[in-house]
Simulated scan of single mutants.
Amino acid sequence: MTGGTGGRNVARKLIGSHLVSGEMTPGTEIGIQVDQTLTQEATGTMVMLELALDLDRVRTDVSVQYVDHNLLQADERNMADHIFLRSASRRYGLWFSRAGNGVSHPTHMQRFGVPAATMVGSDSHTCAAGSLGMLAVGVGGLEVAMAMAGEPLHITMPEIWGVRLTGELPPWLSAKDVILEMLRRHGVRGGVNRIIEYHGPGLASLTAMDRHVIANMGAELGATTTVFPSDDRVLEFLRAEGREDGFTELVADPDATYDVTDPRDLDTRRPAAGQVERDAGPRAVVGGRNYGQGSSRERAAIAPRHLGLRLVLARGYARIHWQNLVNFGILPSNSPTGPTTTGSIRAMCCASRTSGTP
């Protein structure tokens, strides 16, 4: 199905309303006017240094500098960065969110995100703002600095990948199971040069924060970004935050078409993360390929450790999660074919205990 015929989808409406150069033909270069920017201290320091030009104030509607990554105070360097970023924010007219205010992406969604706006950020998970009906793209620091100076973002026009959701998410599943299933099916390059747009009746069962989880992990699929419509669930969220005046309805036309289509029935979803092998006791988790991929970071290893987990058997691991498991005393064991029997799992558990694993 070709996105250039029929009605317009949400992604094309967002791009079309901000297009300053080029045509919306996949594979060609386009320029998009940027409404908002997001930076965090791990990458924002270079952005602020790149702003040391002949610029009086930022020329976006909203620009926010967050401090939420490098919080450890083992020496003076992180503290010095935070002080510099606060002074630079005052100089150039950015909002400054100090350490302790919250993680940048959900905090921005709560305080600054508005439907129908565009945003770039110096963080790969800037795409989480697509949960509100924004076109939000993670880019390099120089691109963010240029956007803050009023320049458009130049990208290759991506294909629009329409994922039509039907059914209702069962109570024993979470939104992360939806995106993990997408990763299982399409891998970490399945979204390259594509914008993923979720649509269909199944959206009614997903809250704005559910959508945030799904949009946030679109980066793991390699997608340019992820978008959701701005509908009643978004209005519900903004009303709860006291910002309903910022609501703009933005939905796909009834006859909207997509470059790529993909139907998904939420009623038939199963937990996508590893499953506990009960017969072996609450000490082992069985996983598949790329186990631990996502954005939970330390918490994904700390919580299982407190529940008594000592061993993970998987065909492959996300690199950062593998290191976090080791850091918190959990043995990540590679199994090319995956253990399939209770006996093999129990044997591995016994081996980990006798080898002195905590």
Results as ranks from 00 to 15, higher is better:
G138V: 05
T107Q: 10
G102Y: 09
T225A: 05
G292D: 06
R346D: 00
P304R: 09
T354V: 15
V163R: 03
A42K: 14
T207K: 03
R189G: 05
P263Y: 08
L221T: 03
Y66R: 01
P282Q: 09
L51K: 02
Q110F: 00
N101Q: 10
F84H: 06
G246S: 05
G93D: 14
R211E: 09
V64L: 07
M209A: 08
P332M: 05
G222P: 10
A284L: 14
E159G: 01
A147S: 15
A351H: 10
D54E: 14
S230C: 10
M79A: 15
L221S: 13
G22A: 08
G6M: 04
Y317K: 06
R319M: 13
Y258M: 01
T126A: 15
I195D: 01
I320F: 07
G140Y: 10
L180V: 04
D123W: 00
Y291C: 12
V120L: 06
I330P: 10
T357Q: 14
R90C: 02
M182T: 13
R239P: 00
E159R: 11
D231S: 07
T37S: 13
S89E: 14
S296Y: 12
L94V: 06
P282H: 09
T248C: 09
G329F: 03
H186R: 06
W322S: 04
E241L: 02
G100Q: 09
A300D: 14
D253E: 07
H212Q: 11
A284N: 11
I214L: 04
S335M: 07
Q275T: 15
S104I: 02
T37A: 15
G113K: 06
M217F: 11
T126F: 03
A301I: 13
I160D: 01
V58R: 08
Q293H: 05
G141Y: 01
D279Q: 09
A129C: 09
R278K: 12
L331N: 08
G292P: 07
N9E: 01
S296W: 08
A240R: 05
R299V: 07
R243W: 10
L132P: 08
D255F: 03
T107E: 15
A52N: 13
D68V: 02
G141S: 14
T118S: 11
P152C: 13
G7L: 02
P158M: 08
E244G: 08
L51E: 06
W172C: 00
